[in-house]
Structures are given as C-alpha cells and as structure tokens.
Design a protein around this nucleic acid. Structure first.
Length: 430
RNA sequence: GGUGAGGUACUCAAGUGGCCAACGAGAACAGACUGUAAAUCUGUCGGCGCAAGCCUUCGAAGGUUCGAAUCCUUCCCUCACCA
C-alpha cells in the first residue's frame, strides 16, 4: 500500500463530507490514523441506509488508514436517542448478540482484514458488559456537566416529548467507547452520520480530559431522495436489506436500477468505488442519454456485486434483462430460472377438468388464473384478445388459447407475461 | 329521543316497473408510444361460455307483479338538523 493519504479530498468530491474537526487533515497527513464507526445491532441485518458509514470506513482503508467497525452489542441495550422522536424499545440480550454476529458477517464483505492496516471488528459489549456502574460514574460521568449534555441536539429535541435517563446516558456510553478504543487500539477518529456529531464530540471531550490526547470527528451528510421519499425504502415500502434472506439479490439490484435520474449521480459517488472519471462520464450519460440509464446499471451492478457477489449479481442482471428488456427466455441459466421462481408467481400446472387434456396442450387461461395474473377466465380471455399475453417472449393472439408442449422451456417451464411487467412461471409436470 | 335525507359495481355518481349487467367520471388493466419515467391516444373493465346465451348482483330478508335497482313490509346501517 502507498503512503497514507488524506481521504478528505476523496470524500469531498464524493459529497460524503458533512463536517469534520479542524485538525483532521493534519492528522491524516501525519500518518496512518485508526478510525472507527459504530453500528447498532437493532436488526439482524444492515440496510442500504447503513452503507454510507460503511463506505466511509472503506475509503479510510483505501487511503491507507486503519478502520475499525464497532458493533454496539452493549450500547444496543440502551438505545441511541439521536434522530429519534420516541423512546426505543429495549431488546433482549440474546437478540442483540445474534444481531451483532450477523452484522459482523456483513461488514466483513466490505473491509480487508489482512495486512498492516487490516480492519478490525469489535463489539462494545466486551467492555461495557463488565463495566460496573460505580466505575462508570467515577471515570466517565465525572467529566460531563449536565449543562453540556442538555445542550446536545439529540437531548434538546426530546425534552418536550420525554427522554428516559437510560437514553440520556447514551452519549456517555458512546464517549466511553471512543476513549476505550483510543486506549486499546489507538483510535483517534470516529466517523458517523451527521446526527452523530453530538455523541462523537462528547467522546473527543472525554479523551481530551482524561488522557490529554487529540482525537477527531468526521460526519457524513444525510441521504435524501430527490422525490422527497426516504432513502432506502423499496417501492413496496420495506427497507432494503443487505441480508439476501430479507431482500433478495434481484430486489436489491432492482432497488438501485430504479434510482431517480436526479439521484443516481450522487449514489454512484456514495455507494461505489468507481473512479472520478468514470463517474463523471456516467453523469454525462445521464444528461445526454437518460433512456439508456447507464448510470443506474453501473450503480446496481457495482453495489450488488460487492454485497452479494459476482454470481448473484449476474443472476440478478439476467433476471432483470428477462423481465424488463425482453431477453430471450430460452437462454436462461438454471440459476436464473431458480431465482425467477422466488421473484414471480409460480404454479404447477394441472389440466382443468373441463378444458383441454394435457396431451392436447397447455391451457393458457388456466395458467393465467392459477398464477393469479387474471382474476377469472373471462379476464384471461380479454387479455388474450387484446394481445396482452405472451408466453416465453412470444405474443399470443386470441387463437392461441392452447399452446403445444413443444414450447416448454427447459425443465418444462412456461414463462407467462401479462402486459409490460407482470410475470408468472408455470411448471408443467410431464 | 324527534325530524329529514340516504345506502347502486374498486371509488364517486346516474338510474324511480320492462329498452338495466345497470349512463357518466375517476381508478385499474391491456394496446400504441416510451427510459423498468411522465404525458397522450385507443380499447377493456360481475361470472361462465367460441358463440347464442345462461347465471349472480343495485344495504338485508320477505312480498306485489308476466316482469323490480326501481312498488310494498320489516330489519340493519350512514349522514344532516332539532333536543
């Protein structure tokens, strides 16, 4: 690796810099800096909204510094009031431990754990759990005035609606973490979302008071969507998770493909490691040929590959090409066919009692109704008459009510399509 | 509790004895166009049926009639005004 360089300029052009302490550029210039970022184990998976701080750590490492990801197994038991309008529900110890383990595994995909500035994953439960209350009050609490704590935005905004002593104490725990990491690992930088500024600076304060050492803070901007919706929600409204069991790689890929033209340039900067020249070329492509959506494709391919791996990303692309770009279903890979079954309605065909026997062919009405694509046979019929149905990529007419078995795809499958984007997959037993 | 108005298909809303599966608008769906965008234009829009046609619907249940969403009875519900 090259000499540690300041990631400041890199973060700046990527528009990832919200604010940082004054001495940070000098600290970066002086040599490798160890920086950390905390992740709440409130769920068993990270979601795309967590990706900004994750990428922050990645940039730190790429610039020759040493990143530490801290899973909040201890603080997760308390709950950060920052950016929250109401008290958090506490979670059980077991849930938090499980979540922490799952998040660790996801973070491992982004960071390099080998080499002189290899990343490290820590859990603050390791030192917070054994910490005694008296010890905490003497060593940490003593350094903070209530006035100081009340002045923090995270607290101030909650004075009206109410805030428990537990959540009020949160910033001290986070400060304690920072100090602990400063001592154990030589950490001198904490990064996080812009809402973390208050908590981070509490840590700087504690480090300065107890050790006289200098430490720094760096925060990222809040991600916004151009249309005013909340970033990280799928069209259905649910969060987009990194866990493939929660959000399939195909849906994950589609989330990025669907990025608004007005957002895609920023997202490329935030979430990919593409070089500046490449991203600027894609910006240009959005301006000159928005219909190509080259930027969205690049974004989706890059992020999906990093999170789910090359194979899963390829399958997601293949399925997307089939469903949205009229790719030939005959060329579908087995993996894509298997993925498809999970994404679109799937049914096993049974010849209807009053319809054509299986030997005569496959009844299209039956396929449409059992898949739930058409509410009734009458609707199915009208669809066919209007040219709204195609099978394996070929448009059917009113005369094609029964299709021959020779049209089945590998594994005796039939890809049924209604209109532009509603699909179903039928398996026809031999 | 009293008086008045009303309950029609996904929504709004016509229809007051046969021409009503029920005007019209919106939504939705399909086709053309398109960028997995938006707009626009065309078509469809209770079920079964290739069709002729049949079946089930107009708050619910009964009744009158050759025939009812439309008339009568009872019941249920909503809204408005008065107390």
């Amino acid at each position: 690796m090259s000499e540690p360089s300041a990631p400041i300029s890199e973060l700046a052009w990527r528009e990832l810099l919200f604010q940082h302490t004054e001495g940070l550029p000098a600290a970066f210039a002086a040599g490798p800096v160890t920086g950390y970022c905390g992740f709440d184990p409130t769920a068993s998976s990270l979601h795309v909204g967590n990706l900004v701080p994750v990428m922050g750590l990645v940039h730190l490492q790429r610039a020759g510094h040493r990143p530490i990801a801290l899973v909040g197994g201890g603080t997760g038991m308390i709950g950060d009031p920052s950016g929250r309008s109401s008290e958090r529900t506490l979670q059980t110890l077991e849930t938090i431990a499980e979540n922490a383990a799952a998040i660790r595994a996801q973070l491992a995909k982004f960071l390099d754990f080998n080499g002189p500035h290899g990343a490290k994953l820590l859990n603050n439960a390791d030192w917070l759990a054994p910490l005694s209350l008296l010890e905490f009050l003497r060593d940490t609490g003593k350094h903070f005035s209530i006035n100081y704590m009340l002045a923090k935005d995270s607290v101030k905004s909650r004075l009206e609606t109410g805030l428990s002593f537990t959540e009020f104490s949160y910033m001290l725990l986070q400060a304690h973490d920072f100090l602990e990491l400063h001592r154990r690992e030589g950490v001198s930088l904490q990064i996080g979302g812009s809402d973390q500024w208050g908590n981070i600076t509490a840590g700087l304060e504690l480090i300065r008071k107890t050790t006289g050492g200098e430490a720094h803070a760096l925060t990222f901007p809040l991600i916004t969507n151009a249309d005013g919706s909340k970033f990280g929600k799928s069209t259905g409204g649910g969060s987009v998770w990194l866990d493939p069991a929660r959000t399939s790689p195909y849906k994950f890929y589609q989330f990025w493909i669907g990025a608004d033209d007005r957002d895609v340039s920023r997202y490329l900067r935030f979430f990919t490691l593409l070089a500046r020249a490449e991203i600027e070329a894609l910006d240009e492509a959005v301006r000159t040929a928005p219909g190509q959506r080259a930027a969205q494709r690049a974004l989706a391919a890059d992020v999906t590959t990093r999170v789910h791996g090359t194979d899963a990303a390829r399958v997601a692309q293949e399925v997307s090409a089939l469903l949205f770009e009229k790719a030939d279903p005959q060329g579908l890979s087995d993996a894509a066919l298997a993925a498809l079954r999970e994404e679109i309605p799937f049914a096993v065909y049974a010849a209807p009692a009053d319809g054509p026997a299986l030997s005569e062919g496959i009844d299209v009405y039956e396929c449409l109704t059992t898949l739930g694509i058409a509410a009734s046979r009458g609707v199915a019929k009208r669809l066919l008459e209007q040219g709204g149905v195609s099978i394996n990529g070929t448009k059917l007419t009113a005369a094609d009510r029964v299709v021959g078995a020779e049209r089945l795809l590998r594994g005796r499958h039939l890809l049924v399509k209604k209109g532009a984007r509603e699909f179903g997959l039928v398996h026809v037993p031999a």
